[in-house]
Amino acid sequence: MATSSKNITTAPSNGTGTTPARLEVLKTYKIYIGGQFPRTESGRYYIPVNAAGRQLANVCLSSRKDFREAVVAARAAFGGWSSRAAFNRGQILYRMAEMLEGRKTQFIEELLLQDSNRRAAEKEVNLAIDRLIYYAGWTDKYQQLFSAVNPVASSHFNFSAPEPMGVVAIIAPQDTSLLGLVSVMAPVIAGGNTCVLLGAEKKPLCAVTFAEVLNSSDLPGGVVNILTGQPDELAPWMADHMDVNAVIYCGQDTALQQLLRERSAGNLKRITIHDVTDWEENEGQSPYFIMDTQEIKTTWHPVENIAGAGGGY
């Protein structure tokens, strides 16, 4: 499989200028909504350029309507995904890691195109795979860690346990193409949420290719929806949307942070901001990230106490 020619259609695929023996089939970078790969409804595209000045691809410049469609898909997928057995969610995350492992070379090549070097690229992909494994292991454990049986004074059984918030809009870290996206997405879906994820604007290739991993991982359509485009453009729509329960923003743009916080007040979305997290380090993974998009539900039920009338045990 040719991997050295992830180039935009205007450039010859082997870069030599001569007519190749076989014309390479180029990949169209589309967005991922509800388990399908549509183009942006807007018909808009942009061409990210790497440090070497090379045009990477015609990438969808997703619109607010794409976001809207993605939220609809995410909402529709929420009931099913959140009620999956935690074990099953773990299996699917593990499957995602398996699929990513199998396509390692492709991601490394894409990372190389997006200004990485081979060593760093390999490390990033390996870390991304390991991160999926990490969260695959958490899906049926974080509840045990963060639940409580509360010893209330009355004759009731009372317990508190985490539950997914619902639909989460994510603006992925902009400085990595793959690892940041995987790192913020995995805890969200490990916890049973569904999400709409906006990839790195300038390094969007892995986001789209990762959607292909998702699509072959038994992950139900709509659980993760991936858009490419501009954070500045989509952030206000994310903050305003009344059917989004939480927003995760990874970035240092304080104006954007304020905008998200302010406009999320419309339906009191929960906001998580990652502005200093180093995704390559251990701090880039934690069950506490799962808890960022969990609510705590407390349930009460009376406990019969017939023996209290004089009996015992």
């Binding site: 705590i296 407390t298 039920h301």
Partner: peptide
């Protein structure tokens, strides 16, 4: 979809029992 669910009881409170909402009922416990 609520932060406190009472089954076969209602309006029970206890210092050991987290209280707080989903959605527009606020956040934090």
């Amino acid at each position: 979809r609520a932060g406190v669910v009472w089954a076969n009881t209602f309006n029970k409170f206890d210092p050991t029992s987290p209280f707080g909402g989903y959605k527009e009922s606020g956040y934090g416990r």
